[in-house]
């Protein structure tokens, strides 16, 4: 009997224990269900977040792309402007050099004409012409020849690099020098060759000294300084200036010398009469 009671008691305990286990299992199943639901919820949230996140970044990327394109366009415009400004700068620099050169040429021409008309002394005028040819043109051997209208001959009145006597009398119309005196046109040799021997009849340049169309003489250049291989643009302007201003200066100084001489003679004559 005792054994039966024990068995029933133990069975009851076991049953209680089993019930507890069943309840626990039910709770576990419920908890599991809840957690599975939670996981699904979270996964859905995650999906929604990822979907909404991709949309905004795509929009942002589109905006950024648009901005980059705008900036690139602006950069291209700036580069183009930079190129234009650089070209303008280059143009200005070239223009500056040209103006500087022109300024220099004008200063040289001013000094030359100022000097030519700074005196009425015939010898000084000739000296100034020589200085201009040496210092501004770079002539090494040259001569200034004046026309004697009575004999129609050209005579050297000033020379550099050679003696005056080495240049013979030249008839107007004869040879290069005589031809220039007759025509009144400048003569330039086609090509300046290395200087070998002085030939008074073969200048490399011959410029008439003219007052309007009236030729009073010529300047004949035979050789340039060794550092001066050819003529520059300024030289041609100087030749033109010399053709006019030098002629006027020579003519004025000659007239002045003659009038001074005549005045002196007349003064002497008057003095003689009034004594």
């Amino acid at each position: 009997m005792v054994d039966e009671k024990n068995i029933f008691s133990r069975a009851e305990e076991f049953l209680q224990l089993f019930k507890k286990g069943a309840d626990f299992t039910q709770e576990l199943l419920k908890e599991n269900e809840r957690l599975r639901f939670k996981v699904v919820q979270l996964e859905e949230e995650k999906r929604l977040v990822s979907v909404s996140g991709a949309g905004s970044s795509g929009k942002l990327a589109a905006e950024l792309n648009k901005r980059i394109q705008t900036l690139e366009q602006e950069m291209q415009k700036l580069l183009q402007r930079h190129r234009e400004v650089e070209a303008e700068n280059k143009d200005f620099a070239n223009r500056y050099i040209e103006i500087e050169q022109e300024n220099n040429n004008l200063a040289n021409l001013y000094v030359a004409s100022f000097q030519l008309h700074s005196t009425l002394d015939f010898k000084e005028v000739l000296q100034i012409i020589q200085e201009i040819i040496i210092n501004l043109i770079g002539g090494e051997i040259f001569g200034v020849l004046l026309l004697d209208e009575k004999t129609n001959e050209l005579t050297a009145v000033a020379t550099e690099g050679v003696d005056k006597e080495e240049i013979p009398l030249i008839k107007i119309g004869v040879g290069i020098i005589g031809g220039v005196a007759k025509s009144g046109e400048n003569y330039f040799i086609d090509e300046i060759k290395p200087f070998e021997k002085f030939n008074p009849l073969s200048p490399i340049v011959c410029i008439p000294l003219k007052i309007k169309e009236h030729v009073i003489g010529v300047i004949a250049i035979y050789k340039l300084l060794q550092q001066k291989p050819k003529f520059s643009e300024l030289d041609y302007e100087l030749f033109t200036l010399l053709a006019g201003h030098a002629a006027t200066a020579i003519f004025s100084s000659k007239l002045y010398s003659e009038s001074e001489r005549k005045l002196s003679t007349i003064q002497g004559f008057i003095n003689l009469l009034t004594k």
């Binding site: 220099n104 200063a107 040289n108 001013y110 000094v111 030359a112 100022f114 000097q115 100034i128 200085e131 201009i132 040496i134 210092n135 501004l136």
Partner: peptide
């Protein structure tokens, strides 16, 4: 010694 040259240099 050249007045022309001096004047050119002065100008420059």
């Amino acid at each position: 010694d050249s007045p022309t040259m001096r004047q050119l240099l002065v100008f420059a």
